[in-house]
Amino acid sequence: MTIYALLFYLLAAVILVSTAIAVTRRNLVHAAIFLVASFFASALLFYLLGAPLLAMLEIIVYVGAIMVLFLFVIMMLKEKPASNRPAARGRKLWTATLGLIYLLAVILLVFATGPRGQTPLTPAVASPAAFGRYLFQGHWLGIEIASLLLLIALIGVLHLGHTAARRTAAGIEEEK
């Protein structure tokens, strides 16, 4: 096992464990922090695979922006103490079944495909310039579509936000 492989498995373990912890926490802030840890480890994984740009973007976008906003919302909502009532048994069963199926499938897949995929991914240190050229020459339609997507998402968010603002205002007036 090379040192890279060692690091790979180490990071993979960190990702798995922290994500698992994240989805099982009742305290939302703790869950968010473990998710941050998971993203962090993913970023390191990217770095390990020779994509420093992606690694940084992962941290900036996911850790630095998205999760902060999550945290922000959680803090704003003043998270109520999570009820200790266990979820409905049916739902638990359903979730567990799906999870098990997925797990089985993945295990089967792993053993069926063998240790290496058939198409070797050649590790290459992608410089930001090379990456940018690849992205904007080969996929610029996709990027344009994505920008439209963001516009639409913005409209949606404005609509939802507007709704919320109106309701609070109405609520305050009612209280008066």
Partner: peptide, 25 residues
């Protein structure tokens, strides 16, 4: 000297938010 140093600065500065937000919370 890494080739994405500038992004790293941003990454770190965006991480700084956690200190403030979490400390406050």
């Amino acid at each position: 000297d890494i080739n994405v140093a500038l992004l790293m600065v941003f990454a770190l500065s965006s991480l700084g938010v956690y200190g403030v937000a979490l400390g406050g919370w």
